[in-house]
């Protein structure tokens, strides 16, 4: 788990650096959410089709995707919008993953739309049987959109409850707007109560807690075939995106630093070992970034490709 958290952090820091060096137009991602997003990926039932888990992700989900086993170079390619970008062929922003083979639905920029779609995959899964579930993630500010309410309504229809894990990663910000100036509810998770959806707010900065809570919630959704609303309190360590500078903020809990202090204290890893790991990933990803830099952009005529799917 620690290894993946470091890997994800280093990946995001590499993406930010690429942006700052002019090797990408825009950065957005998930540094500060690793403690929650890594266990989420580890606990997912990976594969294609309704027997496996679907992920309708937020744009801060790199750690989940790495935990599922994805190679980091794809994210770098998307950052550099090369023809080799495996998620969008150079069409979309960083952090906009898509991988049908693993049921990762394409991330799209409009906030909250994934909450309107997730009941659809969950509905097919309910009918299909088995223990595959759908998982949807997004931020706190976005819960003000109607699509969040749609998700609660559609997943809790009496007699048609859906196997859907509804996650809100609450960093208490929507770009520059503090949550407490816009949200009258005490907790986002309280909104589940009105729909008889089992709900909980957890500390998303602690990977052990996150793992256990996610495991328990997932088991409930898998077995009971009913929704669960989980609000995870997380940090936003480099601000909203490159539009706000993408600089490290000193005043939020750093889940990785906190976890490392704990690992060191309990004698599970030494500072030296952890530094070595980080340096190794840093070097690896620097090399990948150099490789990606020389890859070609998509050819102009490719704008016409994939407007429609065609029968093979």
């Amino acid at each position: 788990m620690h290894d993946l958290m470091v890997k994800a952090r280093v990946l995001e820091e590499r993406l930010i650096q690429m942006y700052k060096q002019g090797h990408g137009y825009f950065w957005i991602g998930g540094p500060g959410e690793e403690a929650f997003n890594v266990p989420l990926g580890l606990l997912m039932k990976k594969g294609q089709g309704p027997a496996h888990d679907y992920l309708h992700a937020h744009y801060r989900q790199s750690a989940t995707v790495l935990a599922l086993g994805e190679e980091p170079i794809g994210a770098l390619r998307q950052m550099k919008n090369t023809a080799t970008d495996p998620y969008s062929g150079g069409r979309n922003f960083a952090g906009h993953f898509s991988r049908r083979e693993w049921n990762i639905a394409p991330v799209s920029s409009p906030i909250e739309v994934q909450y309107a779609m997730a009941p659809g995959t969950a509905l097919v899964q309910k009918r299909h049987g088995g223990d595959g579930i759908s998982i949807v993630t997004g931020g706190d500010a976005g819960t003000a959109e109607g699509d969040f309410a749609s998700c609660l309504v559609w997943s809790s229809r009496p007699g048609n409850e859906l196997p859907l894990l509804i996650i809100v990663t609450n960093n208490k910000w929507g770009i520059s707007t503090p949550a407490e100036t816009q949200h009258g509810e005490t907790r986002v998770s309280d909104r589940g109560k009105a729909f008889n959806i089992r709900s909980k707010t957890i500390d998303g900065n602690d990977p052990i807690t996150a793992y256990q809570e996610l495991k328990e919630a997932m088991e409930y959704v898998r077995k009971e075939r009913k929704p669960f609303l989980m609000e995870a309190m997380v940090s936003r360590l480099y601000g909203h995106s490159s539009a706000s500078g993408a600089n490290f903020v000193g005043n939020e809990v750093d889940c990785l630093a906190q976890f490392e202090a704990r690992l060191e204290k309990h004698g599970l890893l030494t500072r030296q070992e952890m530094d070595d790991l980080r340096n190794r990933y840093t070097e690896e990803m620097a090399a990948m970034a150099r490789q990606v830099r020389d890859e070609p952009l998509p050819a102009p005529e490719t704008i016409w490709n994939h407007i429609y799917a065609e029968r093979k």
Partner: peptide, 23 residues
């Protein structure tokens, strides 16, 4: 019958299509 929610209707159709259904 669905809830009275057009965004939910289109969103759910997208999800069903993603998961191999034909809505």
């Amino acid at each position: 019958n669905s809830p009275l929610d057009e965004r939910g209707i289109i969103g759910t159709a997208i999800g069903i299509a993603m998961a191999g259904g034909r809505p």
